[in-house]
């Protein structure tokens, strides 16, 4: 009997046949484009001309010579790190609150996760209206509380029109959208710690802090890593908040790498330069991806 007629060989053949469509689709439309973006980044491809010339690292070099690139890079990092810390703090607080047994827990949980479940373009439009330069409901309330001046006075904040405030505003919307996700991921981790283990540690005389450090943290660490890795990837690569609220303005104050890549590559038609800018995101993404990969693999075996 030849080897390919054995049940094992037939099972393998059957299995890889079932896998083929998914692997091919993802390979052709993620793997190949990813490699293609490396090639594009080293060419002078543009929307108008289909024939592209190889230009080596010229696109990367010209990005590095551009002052706007550094602003975008700095904003991307400030945005991701700042929003990440806030989401972590708020998410942890919310998770511990939701961990308590209380009446109406399910309803409150469902309401508090709304920001994460709304399609992103939809909720950003709502924020754009709330940040309106003249009819902002936030300003109306602050003004009535006498925390800010009246419309037209120098104490009237124009959220999306003043450089410092604009960056804070786009970060705030990212935090608003992301904190429920952090909380729910953490909650899933916390509820996966069996109470018996905590009781056992308590009986052994461990203080709350010790139980937290020695039992809770190691047990929920993997799930936390995965949650924050996901969040980092989505925050780093999301363009819709900035694009819809400020499109990088005022005067580049909220420019981030995704908006710069989009405006250069698609709007400006310089595909090669746009691809090069978006690839600068990759080294920033890599730590999150490696962390995730290691966590996933360690738990598999």
């Amino acid at each position: 009997m030849s080897w390919w007629r054995t049940p094992t060989a037939r099972r393998y053949l059957f299995g890889y046949t079932l896998l083929a469509p998914a692997v091919l689709y993802v390979g052709l439309l993620v793997g190949v484009p990813f490699l293609f973006s490396l090639y594009l980044a080293m060419s002078d491809a543009s929307v108008g001309s289909p024939v592209a010339r190889f230009v080596g690292i010229e696109n990367f070099a010209s990005a590095l010579e551009n002052a706007v690139f550094y602003t975008a890079l700095r904003n991307t990092i400030v945005f991701t790190v700042g929003a990440g810390i806030l989401k972590g703090l708020l998410g942890t607080t919310l998770a511990f609150l939701l961990l308590q047994p209380f009446k109406g827990r399910k309803v409150i949980r469902a309401l508090v996760v709304i920001p994460f479940t709304l399609p992103i373009a939809v909720s950003v439009l709502g924020w754009k209206w709330m940040f309106d330069s003249q009819f902002s409901v936030i300003n109306w309330a602050l003004s009535r509380l006498s925390l800010i001046g009246t419309y037209g006075s120098p104490d009237w904040p124009v959220w999306l029109g003043q450089p410092g405030l604009a960056l804070l505003s786009v970060m705030f919307v990212n935090v608003w959208r992301g904190f429920p996700f952090s909380a729910i991921v953490l909650l899933a981790g916390l509820t996966s710690v069996p109470p018996e283990i905590l009781d056992a540690a308590k009986v052994d005389g461990a203080s709350f802090l010790q139980r937290f450090r020695k039992v809770i943290v190691p047990m929920i660490a993997p799930i936390l890593f995965i949650g924050s890795a996901f969040d980092t990837v989505f925050t780093l690569s999301d363009l819709s908040i900035v694009y819809l609220l400020t499109n990088g303005g005022p005067d580049g104050a909220t420019e981030i790498l995704p908006t710069l890549a989009y405006n250069t590559g698609i709007r400006g038609g310089a595909l090669g330069r746009g691809a090069a800018i978006s690839l600068f995101l990759f080294p920033l993404l890599l730590p999150a991806i490696i962390l995730l990969l290691r966590t996933l693999r360690r738990r598999q075996y």
Partner: peptide
């Protein structure tokens, strides 16, 4: 894991080659 990791290759890196 390999298939799942492709979920993490963000649109912002893929959209220019995918435009082609």
């Amino acid at each position: 894991i390999g298939i799942f990791m492709t979920y993490l290759v963000p649109a912002i890196i893929l959209f220019i080659p995918l435009a082609r």
